[in-house]
Each structure stands twice: as C-alpha cells, then as structure tokens.
Write a protein that binds this DNA or RNA. Structure first.
Lengths: 126, 126
DNA sequence: CCGTATCCCAGTGGATACTG
DNA sequence: CAGTATCCACTGGGATACGG
C-alpha cells in the first residue's frame, strides 16, 4: 500500500479493512457451537467423534462446519491418519489456546452469576 | 431439596439442573449481537438509539430482542424516562460489567491474532 | 470413521406499520 | 423515541444417504 511509506501508521483504508476483518472474525467465532468446541477441546487432542460426544446436542453437520471454520482461521489443527477406518484428530493451536483462556472466563462467569441470573429471571418473568 | 440435609454438596439432580441452566445461559449470551451490545455499552449509559448507532448492521428487532434477554438475565438495567418523546437508557449491571471484562479479552484476542488469522485463511483457501 | 451433498422444514430475522 | 405486532423471505440446521 503506497501511502504507508509516508507514515508509519495505518492509513484510513487499512483501519477500515482491519476493523471489518476483526468484525468478521468476531462474527465467525462468537457463536455457541464454536465456543463450546474450543472449550471442549481444551488441552486435549480429540477425534471427531469424541468432540461430538462431548458436546450435547451438536449435529454432525454443525460440528463439521464449525471445525472447518476454526481450522480455516488457524484455531485448530486437523490431523488425518491414513488408516482404515480413518481417524481424524483435532487439537487447539496456540491462538486457539489463547482464545480458550478467555472462554474459560465466560464459563467461570456463568457459574459465578448463576444464582443472580436465576433470581433476575424470576423477577422479570413475574 | 431433601437430600441436601444428608451431605453438604449438591445431589445429582441439582448438578444436572445447574449444568443445563448454565448451558442455557451460555446459549443466550454466546451470540454475536449480545456480545457486541455488552461491549458497546461498556461503562457508559446509552439510549436505545445510541446503542443501535454504535453497532453496525443490527436491526431494530434484534436490538430490542437482545436487550430484553440481557435485561431478563440481569446483565443490563433499563430505565424509562417518562418524557415526551420517551427516553430509555441502558447500562450494564455489575454482572454485566464482569462479563464485559471477558469479552474485552476476546476483542483483544481478535486484534492480537489478526495477522495469524489472515495468513491461515490464505493458506486454507489456496 | 469421517466428510460432503441433498433435501426440506422451522424458526430467524428483516421490513413495515401502528401504538403510547 | 421506543416498543410491539404482523408478515414473509430466507437460510440455518436436522435427517439422510452415499463416497473415500
């Protein structure tokens, strides 16, 4: 980008691009299944079927779709073992681990405020 | 719950209930719009229309719906000023603030790994 | 076992209009 | 200005089947 040679910082077009990219990534990742998959993988390496078993209610399709998305964004590594039957393993990358830490925070939050939330719901619903 | 008097910990039924509740809360909150609303509110108090202006692409309906949900779960306070025209203000509660901290973490993460992600996508798509 | 493709329905969410 | 309701297009996501 030509304007960069005139100043060290990003120009407006770059900022816009970076923002919209950030927003796109956020939209990819800020969904229930993606977060649950990351949380479920944790520090382990799991097979497709094991991830599936660990997440109640996720369909085959949603799991595939989200794992692909996470792989594309570099959050999980996918290893195919050329055996019969095939065996495919998933594991979090460094960036995946980094995100997991923040998701752990969300989970902790949920448990910390469970009581508050239940009570708030009762008040609201009544 | 009767069994509680026999031991200090939660019985199985309670655990199941707490888990499914936690899961339900997680499903409520782990969606793009809810997270963006919380992040956008930050430490400020904003009117409905101001929140809307701050979040590109959110529809009137989605904003209302998510604000209601957040209010119900006790993450935002809603104050109606009985003026003409009406003025409704939203602000994060203590629990909302606590969750915001973890969402800030996700945003930081996004910006930290922006480069990694872009490159990973290029590799994947090619 | 894992992945992709196809079909199909239910529910999400946008647009619009009306109320307080 | 904010909320609710109605309508409807659309797609998200489940079920299923087949391929590697």
């Amino acid at each position: 980008m030509v304007t960069k040679q005139f100043n060290g910082s990003l120009d407006e077009a770059d900022l816009t691009r970076a923002d919209s990219l950030a927003r796109e990534i956020f939209s990819d990742i800020a969904n229930k299944w993606a977060l649950l998959i990351i949380e479920s993988l944790g520090e382990r390496t799991l097979r497709f079927s094991e991830v599936r078993a660990g997440i109640e209610g996720i369909s085959h399709k949603m799991l595939t779709q989200n794992l692909r998305m996470l792989e594309r964004n570099g959050l999980v590594d996918r290893t195919v073992h050329a055996t019969v039957p095939p065996k495919v393993e998933y594991t979090l990358t460094e960036s995946g681990q980094a995100l997991r830490v923040t998701i752990d925070g969300m989970c902790d939050w949920t448990h910390t405020y469970l009581g508050h939330i239940e009570e708030s719901r009762r008040r609201f619903d009544g």
